[in-house]
Design a protein around this nucleic acid. Structure first.
Lengths: 219, 219
DNA sequence: AATATTTTTTAGATTAACCTAAAAATTTAA
DNA sequence: TTAAATTTTTAGGTTAATCTAAAAAATATT
């Protein structure tokens, strides 16, 4: 069945919100993510339900149906493959690729996506460490922790970020934090939960709890 | 000023039609190319004229303004660069890339286009031999002839095609005709103007005048 | 030159995606 | 457990791009 860019974006947003919770997703939550009004969301949810891509009962919130889930994962797959392409092959920085990938993710050609996947060497993660679904929509298991959960005196490796916003990524770049960085946690301050950490064996610096929550690491 | 996919497609079509003639482009000609109705075209032409991208007086046909020309060339540039990318890097055949490039040509990022250009080695032509405008919108001069205009007993080289339709390109592929092929014209039949030609020194075959008109060669 | 034909435009609708304002349902709090 | 606050939906409009049918202009033909 034909699908519009807008419908794809709604499915993607519902998918993203569903990853964080087991509960049904509220109209307002979707509205906020879509940068639109609740009334518009209600219209669209009814339409997506008619097409069989979501389960929606009014006032009860929304969930993706199995078909909707499959569509959403294929968009996520495209987004992340294109992001990696932009960084690896086109020479963009990791904080520059989101908006372009938002456009490229709507290009419709299974053959292209699979060739791109092959061209990139069937990667498991994108430039932000997010897992890339394979052609069957299976997400590789990554099991990373937030840096904010690691104990003092432990060493870990930066594997990904929980947020792709430009400001956040640029901050990390400024701190010399990129994928694969080695992190030695010297101390955690009780007062504000900020972390005193050495990056790639350099002189230790302070990182706020807010930043640490958005950094994903492997011990 | 913001531009929609549809508006881009209209400018592209007007540009293509303008290449073949000096005259103003008729509403019906645009309608045919856009696969829509004349009434819809009239509406759009008025809108494009309001935006300053075309010169249009009702009943008089339409031409691109300098700004419109610039936009159209940037779309052509993107289309052709993406086509080359699809063939060179993704391994598609030249008859498979048109529809995907029709989507990719609307991706908006000057930086991406220029990086893609560089990645491909600042190519002069796309997989069909069509010239690629550079970043300033300048088209390289190619000056090719139609195979149908070449005299008997001459040798030439296949440099491009005047048509990108799948059926045509697949026919050429079947005849072992691809960019760079060496063509020895043995004989031109007066009756139907078909050409008896040897391709890459193989045993000569017949090519219809219709096909020969759409093959571009360099002596 | 008058008429017929073709082309183009206008008028009035339709659809997708959005909006605001008001009504209805649900949730929270007194 | 009723009232207040919040969330969600409905109702009624808007805009972009399309359509059909009819009117107007341009072109071709007798």
């Amino acid at each position: 069945m034909a699908i519009s860019f807008t419908e794809e974006n709604y499915l993607k947003v519902i998918h993203r919100l569903s990853e964080a919770t087991q509960e049904d997703i509220s109209t307002n939550a979707v509205a906020e993510q879509m940068q639109t009004k609740a009334a518009s969301v209600t219209d669209m949810l009814r339409k997506l339900a008619d097409k069989g891509w979501v389960n929606y009962q009014k006032y009860q919130g929304v969930r993706l149906s199995p078909t909707g889930e499959k569509i959403a994962l294929s968009i996520v797959r495209k987004h992340r493959l294109w992001e990696l392409f932009l960084v690896e092959k086109m020479g963009f920085n990791w904080d520059e690729v989101h908006d372009i990938a938002e456009q490229l993710e709507h290009i419709e050609s299974d053959e292209l996506v699979n060739k791109l996947d092959e061209y990139l060497g069937f990667p498991k993660t994108d430039p932000h460490g997010d897992p890339i679904p394979n052609k069957d929509g299976i997400l590789p298991e990554l099991a990373y922790s937030q840096l904010s959960e690691i104990k003092a005196n432990k060493t870990c490796k930066l594997m990904g970020v929980a947020q792709d916003s430009t400001v956040f990524l640029q901050l990390l770049t400024k701190l010399n934090l990129s994928l694969g960085a080695k992190l030695d946690i010297q101390e955690i301050n009780e007062f504000d939960r900020s972390i005193f950490v050495s990056i790639n064996d350099a002189a230790p610096i302070f990182i706020s709890h807010e930043v640490a929550k958005n950094i994903l690491v492997k011990s």
